[in-house]
């Protein structure tokens, strides 16, 4: 019974996430249509300019507003999808030989911890290597304020 409930819950979850995706695609489609219409209005404005300046002006304003708004909407969608990610930072492990001081840096592996003894050093086989540091490097520079 519990399993059935769980399955139902999972299905609901999947359905809701697909629904969100559908709405998002639907909205994107509308925005793209509006954008196409805006471009068409601008083209019409160019052709109407020679005969009717007022109509050309109105069409140009409508076209520009629609183009800007749809562009903004698309940008917002993109920002939203970019934001919906959990960033997993790259964590590095520094391994040192306590005798010769030889240093190796590799990506973190499950089970690593600071001061864990590892396999012997290649240069000095009688000495075990040791993890001396585990850290992540933050690439992007923080914005500084000159105050």
């Amino acid at each position: 019974m519990m399993k059935v409930n769980q399955l139902a819950k999972h299905q609901n979850h999947n359905q809701s996430s697909t629904a969100t995706q559908k709405i998002s695609t639907y909205l994107t489609l509308i925005v793209l249509i509006v954008m196409a219409l805006a471009v068409a209005a601008l083209l019409l404005a160019i052709t109407a300019y020679a005969t009717d300046v007022v109509a050309a002006g109105v069409l140009a304003i409508i076209g520009l507003i629609a183009l800007v708004l749809s562009g903004f909407m698309l940008y917002q969608f993109r920002r939203q999808t970019v934001q919906l990610k959990i960033e997993i930072p790259k964590v590095m492990t520094t391994i040192e030989c306590t005798k010769c001081g030889g240093k190796t840096i590799r990506e973190f592996q499950r089970g690593d911890y600071v001061y864990k003894e590892l396999e012997p050093c290649q240069k000095c086989p009688e000495t075990k290597q040791m993890i001396t540091a585990i850290y992540k490097e933050v690439k992007e520079k923080e914005k500084t304020y000159e105050v």
């Binding site: 959990i86 960033e87 964590v91 499950r110 911890y113 600071v114 585990i134 850290y135």
Partner: peptide, 26 residues
């Protein structure tokens, strides 16, 4: 967001920023 990135760190057993004190002691 901080807790979200902590999840993987905890699951994998990676040292976290709060471990500065224990790291000095170690």
């Amino acid at each position: 967001e901080a807790y979200a990135s902590a999840l993987k760190a905890f699951a994998y057993g990676q040292p976290i920023g709060d471990g500065a004190g224990p790291l000095v002691a170690a």
